[in-house]
Amino acid sequence: MERAGKTPILKTEALEKLFKLKGGSKLYAVDKINLEIYPGETLGVVGESGCGKSTLGRTILKLLEPTGGKIYFDGQDITDYSPRAMRALRRDMQIVFQDPYSSIDPRKSVIETIAEYMFIHKVYKSKRETFEKAAELMEQVGLAQRFANSYPHELDGGRRQRIGIARAMSLNPRFIVCDEPVSALDVSIQAQILNLLMDLQDQFGLSYMFVTHDLSVVKHISDSIMVMYLGKCVEYAESEELFLHPVHPYTKALLSAIPRADLKYRGTPAQLIQGEVTSPIDVKPGCRFARRCPLCTDECSTKTPEWREISPGHFAACFCI
């Protein structure tokens, strides 16, 4: 994934986040992930629900403390930055949370929520300027001004999600982790938000790590795509390439399960992945997809497949390719 002469805006080396559970067992949420995101580019992250995408996003921003590995932001090693040092960096690195219900303070009005970070970082001198900017952001994400003084519980799910997007953009960050920012939105608003994110990228050279379950969205917005399965990265390639030549059996299963908005495919149910799900707790060596994989061999359940370059720029971890 290296690229000569360019510094990635974000890079991780063997990044790890284990959760300690009762009784001393460990849950491998993010297990030795290497990734690089270059300025002005978007990395799409897809994978099974519960595979560690949100944890990865939060760990990168150090909202969760990593338990191993390194994080570099714009060339600086930020792995051991104190919360205070991180605070200054927050202007540059933001997140749009997956859950619009729990990431917003229910006692703050819409405009107060959007202005919140600008106040914390004292971006503008006057209160009036801050609220003017907040009003502008509302316009940008398609929230009508009349909601300015509404409270989050008075809004529908889609509007609540847009508050989070406006708040993340309020500090003009250089890098945003977007954790399913559009999944609660209808396709038309979704298209508006995606266009907006891409316009901001063109204008300001923003970079995104974009987590989503919607494969047509990820294909549309990403330069490259990382596929995760139970804490591990199983495949990485440029967006076009991944959709044209998926190699990992999990990626293939994922691409074949997309429900098409076309009656032609009705009645031919998606090929369900059979077999029991491996638990991410105290994992043993072996491929984590082995128990559900149609190609599984003895080797797969005892040895961990290595990360290899299948073709230039296309990586995967699987014995059967």
């Binding site: 209808d186 038309s188 298209a191 995606l194 494969l215 047509s216 549309h220």
Partner: peptide, 27 residues
């Protein structure tokens, strides 16, 4: 408009086509 807003997985397009404007104010 809804159908036209869906990103087409088989095509690479630069811009999506949302329905212009905002929903009517229910108040």
């Amino acid at each position: 408009g809804l159908f036209q807003s869906i990103p087409d997985i088989n095509k690479k397009s630069d811009r999506l086509k949302p329905i212009p404007g905002l929903m009517a104010d229910p108040a």
